[in-house]
C-alpha cells in the first residue's frame, strides 16, 4: 500500500501562495484599482477593524482596550508592512522550513486516552460528554 508515498523525501519548490479573492472590500484600492493594503503609512487600522478582528478571534475586548490596541496595532502593522518593500514577484514562498514531502503513518490503531483523562480537564461534563452553554450559531 502507498508504496509511492512512503519514505519519499525530496524538495519541491512550492508553487506560489494561496491565491485568494481580493473581494471583501477591506483593502484600500489605489487609483489603478490594484489592491495594496500596505500603501498608506498611517491610519492603517481603525478602531472598528480592531473590533472586527476581536470578534473574529473571540476576544471580548473592552472599550479601553480597543483604543489601546488600535494604536498599537497601527504601529506594528506599519512596521511589518515593510515586507512589501521587497520585490518578490517571482520568489516562491516558504511555508515549511524543512524540505520534506509525504510524511505519513500507516493506517494502524494506537491507544486512545481513558475517558476519565479525556474529561479530567474539562470545565463541565455530563454523560461522558463535554458540556457547553447553548450555542447560538449553527454549524458552518
Amino acid at each position: 500500500m502507498s508504496r509511492g508515498l512512503r519514505g519519499h523525501v525530496g524538495h519541491r519548490t512550492p508553487l506560489g501562495g494561496l491565491a485568494r479573492p481580493k473581494s471583501g472590500g477591506q483593502a484600500p484600492v489605489d487609483s489603478e484599482g490594484v489592491s495594496d493594503p500596505t500603501a498608506s503609512a498611517a491610519g492603517r487600522i481603525s478602531r472598528e477593524e480592531v473590533a472586527h478582528l476581536a470578534r473574529l478571534a473571540r476576544l471580548a475586548v473592552s472599550e479601553d482596550e480597543l483604543d489601546l490596541f488600535a494604536g498599537q496595532l497601527d504601529v506594528i502593522l506599519g512596521a511589518v508592512a515593510r515586507v512589501g518593500e521587497v520585490a518578490a514577484a517571482d520568489i516562491p514562498p516558504t511555508s515549511h522550513a524543512v524540505p520534506l514531502t509525504n510524511v505519513l503513518r500507516n493506517d494502524e490503531l494506537s491507544p486512545c486516552l481513558p475517558r476519565e483523562a479525556v474529561l479530567s480537564g474539562a470545565p463541565a461534563v455530563e454523560d461522558g460528554k463535554f458540556r457547553v452553554p447553548r450555542i447560538l450559531t449553527e454549524e458552518a
Partner: peptide, 23 residues
Amino acid sequence: IMIGSYALSSGYYDAYYGQAQKV
C-alpha cells in the same frame, strides 16, 4: 492574535502573510 487574524484575512493575505513567506 489580532495581528495574525488581520494578516491572514482575505484581501490582506498576499500583502502580509504571503509576502512574509517570500521574504
